[in-house]
Design a protein around this nucleic acid. Structure first.
Lengths: 112, 112
DNA sequence: CGAATATACCTTGAACTAATAGGTATAACA
DNA sequence: TGTTATACCTATTAGTTCAAGGTATATTCG
């Protein structure tokens, strides 16, 4: 019954997407490649991760979508809503917190 | 059939345990509290997470266990094997890599 | 022209990790 | 004596991510 908390280190895909969309609007396929690039190949998230997260962020009101025909295809451009900016700030703080926690643990005394 | 890769940000509980056990041998119940402390309360992993990971690390040869009766109870002390030191180094490098990747993404141009 | 590759969207099902909740037993404390 | 703290453990559930596919148009190349 008691609903479980999300895993303590989730929300990174969400964070990365929101961060990228903060600078400019982008479409899904573009974001997939962009995440690889901007993380220096350290993180590679497939379309199967990106699209569902985008949809969920749109449903929850953090993103708004704009369909734009290009050539014969249709791109769906996403951009941050006001709520999305808030969500980004929250996630960024969460990340900072756990990142610092781990860093502290790794650097703590005892490195023989 | 193709076995899936582990999620890109897993292995942090493992990393923290190995790091703590690098300095001195500790027992499970102690590790649970220790992780909270050493991460400045940022990360809190319950016994249901810690014990299974300890067992799996022992089975895979990264940890060795030593049962030690204290008072009327029995504590199981864990310490790193040679292989465990290698595993720790690997995980530490993995972490550094993704941590840097995310940092790069967050700091990348466009912070209005 | 035809075939292969790249773009661009999407969903489903399996796999994996972590969270919650329980379950046993002794010691200490009130 | 009963409640809290120590100390171990496991099973179930939940949540996230991964792999793999499925549709369709555009481009490139032989």
């Amino acid at each position: 019954m008691a609903k479980t908390n999300p895993p303590f280190m989730s929300g990174v895909p969400e964070l990365l997407l929101l961060r990228l969309l903060e600078s400019r609007e982008m479409y899904g396929y573009e974001l997939v490649r962009s995440i690889r690039e901007v993380t220096g190949e350290a993180i590679s998230l497939g379309e199967g991760v990106i699209y569902p997260v985008l949809h969920s962020l749109e449903r929850s009101g953090s993103l708004k979508a704009r369909r734009k025909p290009v050539g014969g295809r249709t791109r769906v451009y996403y951009s941050l809503t006001k709520q999305g900016h808030g969500r980004l700030a929250d996630l960024q703080e969460d990340w900072r917190r756990i990142q610092t926690g781990i860093e502290t643990a790794l650097e703590s005394p005892g490195h023989a």
